[in-house]
């Protein structure tokens, strides 16, 4: 029998993709061990903790637990805002690069990716340094006389947004760039020839044709933004507690709760998968229209 050529691929996917997810799924149904770790005994406690509120001592009638849903909601909202900002800035940037002369496009792309050669943690810490009360940004603005006292930026939602935007912008720029670069400007000419204004050309010709690039960029920014914990942790404060931090906390030190962390991860993953599935379905329907 011939050597199965896809075996290495399947092995990679199995070991690095499926196995961790399966492990995580199993852990979410186990019993927690008090100093971290798990006891191999089936339990729904983690999901119960997430969804059901039985009062402080567990003796009250079960109601829906809002704490974690609130954190989810805040994270989703935060990720939507970050994705929107990345799109609003990333699209014109990608457009600009893709419409330069072919020889200079490479230079622009290189400049976009340079900051990403530095570790995310260090970049996030530097951002905090830049925007803190006596950091360069505030001192610059005060020096100009625009403001009298430092803008309190650190530990706000704004700072978290800034961090997410800064972390994930290239993931928006690159796929859109690829789509715009493939776009044939003869379509724009044809539309203008058929009496379409610039605005109509953008809305009815360019946007639909580069849409796959925009959607890919949005997914690439939205998904990691949703689970991000560095930016919320370092730039935000207790008020901006996100899913990523919640999960990370469950696995840290001896205070964590592994099954609960695993359960939160599974719920997050299901949400993302459902969103992607919904998107794939709607795209498939459009393709056959």
């Amino acid at each position: 029998m011939a050597f199965p050529l896809l075996l290495p691929t399947w092995a990679m996917i199995g070991i690095f993709l499926l196995l961790p997810v399966i492990l995580m799924a199993i852990y979410s149904f186990l019993t927690k061990e008090f100093r971290g770790g798990v006891v191999w005994e089936f339990s729904l406690a983690a999901y119960d903790q997430f969804f059901v509120n039985r009062g402080l001592f567990g003796d009250e009638p079960a109601t829906l637990e809002w704490t974690y849903i609130g954190i989810f909601w805040r994270s989703i909202w935060q990720a939507i805002v970050a994705t929107t900002i990345c799109l609003l800035i990333g699209f014109p940037t990608a457009w600009f690069i893709a419409t330069r002369a072919p020889t200079t496009r490479g230079v622009w792309l290189f400049l976009i990716t340079i900051p990403y050669w530095v570790n995310l943690l260090i970049r996030t810490v530097s951002l905090k340094f830049l925007i803190r009360d006596n950091g360069p940004l505030n001192e610059f603005l005060m020096g100009l006389g625009v403001i009298d006292s430092p803008l309190p930026l650190v530990n706000t939602n704004l700072a978290v947004q800034l961090g997410l935007f800064y972390s994930y912008l290239p993931f928006m720029v690159l796929p859109i760039y690829a789509a715009v670069e493939r776009y044939d400007f003869a379509y724009s000419e044809a539309a203008a020839d058929l009496y379409a204004s610039r605005w109509v050309i953008m809305r009815e010709i360019i946007m639909p044709i580069v849409k796959p690039g925009i959607i890919a960029g949005c997914i690439l920014v939205f998904v990691p933004s949703l689970g991000a914990f560095l930016a919320p942790d370092l730039l935000g404060g207790a008020k901006t507690f996100m899913i990523g931090s919640l999960i990370e906390e469950q696995f840290r030190g001896s205070l964590g709760n592994w099954p609960f962390g695993a359960a939160v991860s599974m719920i997050l993953m299901s949400l993302v998968l459902m969103a992607l599935l919904f998107y794939a379905r709607s795209m498939a329907r459009e393709g056959t229209r």
Binding site: D184, A186, Y187, E189, A190, A191, A192, D193, L194, Y195, A196, S197, I205, P208, I209
Partner: peptide
């Protein structure tokens, strides 16, 4: 005049039919 203001239409070499 801008192209969209001219009452002429064009058949393009590579047709440029809108793919979507």
């Amino acid at each position: 005049l801008e192209p969209n203001q001219r009452p002429v239409n064009t058949v393009f070499q590579q047709y440029a039919l809108f793919p979507h």
